[in-house]
Amino acid sequence: MLTIGIAVVRVVLGAFVAAHGVQKLTHFWGGGGLAASTKEFQDDGFVGGKFTAFAAGGVQVAGGTLLIAGFLTPLASAMVIGPMVVATTVKAPVGFWSQDGGYEYPLFLALLGIGVAFTGPGAFSFDHATGLSAWYGQGAWSWVPPVAATAAGVFGGLGARVLLHRPALTTSRGRTL
């Protein structure tokens, strides 16, 4: 039963994050496409224009797809954690609850990404089928891949925030960031 539970959490998290990335890049599933995502990032005080929007959406699509497959799971987890850390920091000034525009949802997804990093891909995964999971889930060093994935995601997200965000910008929504 645990094997099924791990697969369900991993696949659902991957699907949610990948779909969110697809929305950033296209008009599928109600997405505004790259132009709308570029404007949203600029309104939130980020520089980089289309590159920033494309990178965010692309990382979400790639990380989510890898999670769905259960392939390169530590990397996939980091690719989910990073953008959700950025989103959490952007929404933090608004408050916790998502219904008010807060950081509840991206924090939840980031924490699920950390959980998947620590549980591993499970038996129903490409990592397991190819033997890759043996490299990052056993023995005295089994803590290294999940800790590395978590650190890469958290510090990668915070690094992107520091590099690409200009707090002195005032958004078109009237907020000073």
Rank of each mutant, 00 (worst) to 15 (best):
Q138M: 06
Y105H: 05
S98E: 14
T170A: 12
F96G: 09
A140V: 09
V59H: 09
A69D: 00
V11F: 08
Y103L: 14
E104S: 09
A56C: 05
Q99C: 10
L111K: 00
L67R: 08
W29F: 15
A18H: 02
A69S: 03
M79N: 11
G31L: 04
S77R: 08
V94N: 13
V47H: 13
R161Q: 15
Q99G: 12
G70R: 04
A129H: 09
M1T: 14
L132Y: 10
S98K: 13
K50S: 10
I114C: 11
L66D: 03
A129C: 08
G33C: 01
G31M: 06
A15D: 05
D100G: 10
A78S: 14
D44H: 13
V22C: 02
Y105P: 07
V147L: 12
F108C: 11
A78R: 08
V94Q: 14
L109G: 04
G115F: 10
A55G: 03
E40W: 05
D43R: 03
G102L: 09
Y103F: 15
G156W: 04
A149W: 00
A56E: 00
A7Y: 02
A15Q: 03
P146C: 06
L132I: 09
V12D: 06
S37Q: 01
G95V: 10
R10F: 07
E104C: 06
A168V: 13
Q42P: 03
W97L: 14
P93V: 12
T89C: 14
A69L: 13
A123L: 12
I4L: 13
L25P: 04
G137C: 05
T73N: 10
G139C: 01
W29A: 15
F124N: 08
G48A: 08
A78W: 02
G5D: 07
L67Q: 05
V17E: 08
L107V: 06
T119K: 08
D100C: 07
P121C: 08
F108S: 14
R173E: 15
K24R: 01
T170Y: 09
L75A: 14
M79K: 11
A36W: 02
T88G: 03
R10M: 08
V85I: 11
G31F: 00
